[in-house]
Write a protein that binds this DNA or RNA. Structure first.
Lengths: 175, 175
DNA sequence: ACCTGAACACCGTTCAAGT
DNA sequence: ACCTGAACACCGTTCAAGT
C-alpha cells in the first residue's frame, strides 16, 4: 500500500501496473490478488490515502471561510500526489472508496439537504479542475504544453478561487 | 475516424485499442501510425467530433438562457457518446483538440476577460460532472452501482442545473 | 503515399499447486 | 493463510521492407 503510493509518485498512474507493483514489493503479480480483488479496488485504497491527507479543518463558524479551507485542503491533497485527481475521480465515480470527502464538504456547507447537493457540485468542480491542472502539469513536464509547472499552478489557482467564490455566492442566491 | 467513434460506442474507451481499431478497418495496427502520430492524437480527433455535435445555440440575448442552453448542449454531447466525457477531459487537459467549446461558453457568457475565466470554471464543472455521471452509468450497467441508468441520469440532472445556476448567480455577485 | 510483417517490451487476470 | 509458476489473451509503438 505504501509501496503503491511511492510507485504512483515515482512513475505515475499509467505505469502503476500490478506487475510493476509486485516487482517493487518483491512478490509475484498473482500474489496481489490475494489482498485485492482487482486493480480497481487497489486504486480505491490508494484514493482513500490521498484524500485522507486533507485534514479536517477546525470549524471557525464562518461558513465561507470553512468551505474555502476545505476546498483548498482537498485541492492540495489531490495535487500533492502525482495523478491524484484522476485516481480519486475515477474511484469516486465508481462509488468505491470512502465518502468522507463529500461528508466533510457538506458539513462545512452547514449540513442538510441543500448543503449535500451543493457539496456534490463543489466536489465535481474540484475534481474536474484538479484533473485538468494535473494533466496539464504532466504535459508541461515533458514539453507538450507551453507553460512551465509554476505558471500552470499560478494561472489555475486564480480560476480555482473564482470557482469556489462563485459557487458560494450562487448558493446564497439559489439556496 | 467514423470507425473509431463506432468502436467507442460499441466497446468503450478501455477497449478502443489501436489493434482493435485496425482490425475493424481491416488493416494492420502499424498502418494507423501513418495517419496519426500516436493514440493520443487519434483520441483528440475523436474528442473534436464529440463536442462538434454540440450545436452553436442561437443567441437569444438572455445571458442566463444562452449559457444554460450551451451548458446543456455540451452535457448532452458528452453523455451521448460512451466515455465521451473522459475522452474530452483528457484531450482538453493536454491542450489538444480544438478550443471551440471554451469559446462558445465564453461567448454565451458575454465575452471579455471575466467571461473567459467564468467559462473555464463552467467547463471544468461540466467535465467533472459528466465524467462522474458517465462512469457511474457504466458501473450501473454491469451492476457495480446500486441504481439503474435512468435513476443516475435523473438524480444528476438536478445536480447539474443547480451547478449551472450557482455559477451564474455567483458570476453576478463576484464579477 | 500508404501499408505489411515482424518484432520489442510490455499488460490484467486466473488457477492449480506449493508451503 | 499466503504465495509461486505458468499460462491466456491481450497492449502501444517502431521500423525495415514492400507496392
Amino acid at each position: 500500500m505504501d509501496t503503491a503510493i511511492r510507485l504512483l509518485e515515482e512513475t505515475g498512474l499509467p505505469d502503476l501496473s500490478m506487475r510493476r507493483l509486485a516487482g517493487a514489493i518483491g512478490v509475484q503479480p498473482s500474489a496481489l490478488y490475494w489482498h485485492f480483488e482487482n486493480k480497481q479496488s487497489l486504486l480505491a485504497a490508494v484514493a482513500d490515502r490521498i484524500v485522507g491527507a486533507a485534514e479536517a479543518a477546525p470549524a471557525t463558524g464562518d461558513r465561507d471561510a470553512d468551505v474555502t479551507a476545505a476546498a483548498i485542503g482537498l485541492r492540495d491533497a489531490l495535487l500533492s500526489h502525482r495523478d491524484g485527481a484522476e485516481v480519486v475521480l475515477s474511484t469516486q465515480a465508481l462509488g468505491l472508496g470512502s465518502e468522507a470527502t463529500h461528508r466533510r464538504l457538506a458539513q462545512a456547507l452547514g449540513g442538510g439537504d441543500a448543503a449535500a447537493s451543493a457539496a456534490t457540485v463543489l466536489l465535481q468542480f474540484i475534481l474536474g479542475h484538479a484533473s485538468l491542472v494535473q494533466q496539464r502539469i504532466q504535459a508541461a513536464r515533458f514539453g507538450a504544453y507551453p507553460q512551465d509547472e509554476a505558471d500552470v499552478v499560478a494561472t489555475t489557482s486564480a480560476d480555482f478561487s473564482a470557482g469556489v467564490r462563485m459557487i458560494l455566492a450562487g448558493l446564497d442566491v439559489t439556496g
